[in-house]
Amino acid sequence: LFHARFEQAGLVDAIKDLIQDSDFHCRDSGIALRNMDNSQVAVVVILLEAGGFLPYHCDRRLNLGISLTSLTKIVHYAGDEATLALKANDNPDTFNLVLECLQTGCIIKYDIKSRDIDQEHLEIPKTDYAATITIPSAEFQRICRNLSQLLESVANEASEERIKFSSSGDIGSGSATLRHNSDLTGPIALTISLKYLVNFSKATALSYSVTLSLSSEVPQLVEYKVESGFARFYFAPQIGE
């Protein structure tokens, strides 16, 4: 039997524009998801430890193939205040989704067919980054959204005290600068697609701060810590940098 109740259903919203279907690996230690985005330039890794659920029960390993497109619709109509419970019995072909709206007491139940997802295994090596910078997640989202209104990609430059996001396009250029108190091994400058940063920043509601781990030769990491776990977004560097 598997049963998990999760109070941050907004997490689904943060990844729905990146991946359509994914296996949810359910273990006694928690739930994990690791998947490449549709355009094969980003990887989403989510870990939710068992302690973040009330309750959590999983007595055997289970892989649930879930359509995030469908899950998003279900969660969206329940509203932000809803809790989401996943249940599965010994039949791995179907699982139950139970949404509970705390304010009204309304309970919505679904029986969902598990999807057979042909998912390749991704191995993520441990990496030492040139810069690891933590900034308020709301500021990060504001900067990405603001710059993306007019421009397509952003150059990140980080020095010991400040991180600068600057961008230029047909209409001109723009930049935003933020103070930070993080450690850098040296100054760094690299270019990232704003479209993807805007997507990653949809996880803003999950955490007060976001950590950017940057190096020029390896995928950049955008990480949101959630209660008993994390949401990590890896993004491939531009070729020729």
Partner: peptide, 14 residues
């Protein structure tokens, strides 16, 4: 997107 690397080349299990 032009100039954008493929994430699979970094993370796929060899």
């Amino acid at each position: 997107a032009p100039g954008q690397g493929d994430i699979g080349s970094y993370f796929f299990k060899k």
